[in-house]
Write a protein that binds this DNA or RNA. Structure first.
Length: 361
DNA sequence: AAGGCGTGGAG
DNA sequence: TCTCCAAGCCT
């Protein structure tokens, strides 16, 4: 018979694949252990899921281990100084996640007796936990059947069903499809299996369809080019913004730092003084924008790409002798710069002015 | 609801 | 060099 659509999709195919090919990750209870009754620690699951939002597994591993070493339980994290959390998060990006992480830990410790809610609804009420993260924690840590839809799963589902609707409009349809596929007995493993499949087989470019447990069920593979899914709207280009950064060094080998506002770009993080970052070509990014009078010398520029714009910072350096009037920051010894809550763009600017700044030894 | 919000690695 | 993008959330 002529078959327009592939075979019905069977979660057991994926779970069998997962039992043999799952990735071993620091926050994961892998299938052999799980079969012996080991249960994922909700604190570990939550911490890893927040870190993994729009962030690669490779980048997260070291941060996850560092956080667990510093704060072994959610109560420890709730009791930590926010500044220490920001320092530990520095370099991972999307810093609102760190602020929400701290708030969420405080809420769980104070209002939930140190235990995470075990329902999607309860989880989603917490700061920094949205549709995806609530569903993931519910499934992985509490064995709840839920619709876990992240970027990987969107890609897998869009190919399995050759969904022509572009993202993000297709998300409700995709969410319903994932939910319908999710088995009641191993929802957490199913979710992680879908994500592992998306990360290792059903990849954005050159998917390894020959190795896929769903190769007999995939509509995109049958009738089209899987790589062209999911459909999505063309992105717009990033504007260029210009600015200046001023690296002041005092006689005792310390750098002048200050804190950024709590909200907005790099909110609550540490910076060197600088101008606003403007798209206008007439914005003053010259030495005239100096934060205080000193013998500023230009020492090149650094570029940095943010989510929605590219930044080119002119960097200036001056050797000064300590305090200036009207300064609200502090002098940080070069030796301890690496431990500060400095976002990557600021490390670049400081390294441009002081090449040995972040070199150990 | 569309845009703000980081970073570094892969190809 | 350039493009894409990785386990999204919030407003």
């Amino acid at each position: 018979m002529l078959r327009e659509t592939p075979q019905a999709i069977d979660a057991a195919l994926l779970l069998d694949w997962y039992d043999r090919h799952h990735r071993d990750l620091p926050w994961r209870v892998s299938p052999p252990m799980a079969l012996r009754g080991a249960i994922a620690n909700p604190y570990h699951v939550w911490l890893s899921e927040v870190m993994l939002q729009q962030t690669t597994v490779q980048a997260v591993k070291a941060y996850f281990e560092k956080f667990l070493a510093l704060w072994p339980t959610v109560e420890d994290l709730a009791a930590a100084a926010t500044e220490d959390v920001m320092k530990a998060w520095a370099g991972l990006g999307y810093y609102a996640r760190a602020r929400n992480l701290k708030k969420c830990a405080e809420t769980v410790a104070r209002e939930h007796g140190g235990r995470f809610p075990d329902s999607e609804e309860g989880l989603k009420a917490l700061p920094g936990i949205g549709d995806y993260t609530a569903a993931a924690i519910a499934a992985i840590a509490f064995n709840r059947r839920s619709a876990v839809l992240d970027g990987n799963v969107e890609r897998v589902i869009s190919r399995l069903y050759a969904i022509e609707t572009p993202l993000p409009a297709a998300k409700p349809e995709m969410r319903a499809l994932v939910y319908s596929l999710t088995p009641a007995d191993r929802p957490g493993d199913f979710a992680q299996a879908m994500m592992d499949l998306g990360a290792t087989i059903c990849t954005p470019k050159r998917p390894a369809c020959a190795l896929c447990p769903f190769r007999g069920n995939c509509r995109a593979l049958a009738v089209a080019d899987p790589e062209t899914f999911p459909r999505k709207a063309a992105r717009k280009e990033k504007p260029l913004r210009l600015g200046a950064a001023f690296v002041a060094i005092d006689g005792s080998e310390a750098v002048y730092l200050r804190k950024r506002p709590e909200s907005g770009l790099l909110g609550g993080m540490t910076e060197v003084p600088g101008t606003d970052w403007t798209s206008r070509r007439d914005g003053d990014t010259s030495i005239a924008a100096q934060p205080f009078a000193a013998h500023w010398e230009p020492c090149g520029s650094v570029s940095h790409v943010f989510t929605h714009f590219e930044l080119r910072l002119s960097v200036y350096r001056a050797i000064v002798d300590g305090a200036r009037p009207g300064m609200h920051g502090w002098w940080e010894p070069i030796a301890t710069l690496a431990e500060q809550a400095l976002p990557s763009v600021m490390k670049k600017a400081i390294a441009q002015a002081i090449p040995q700044a972040f070199k150990s030894g």
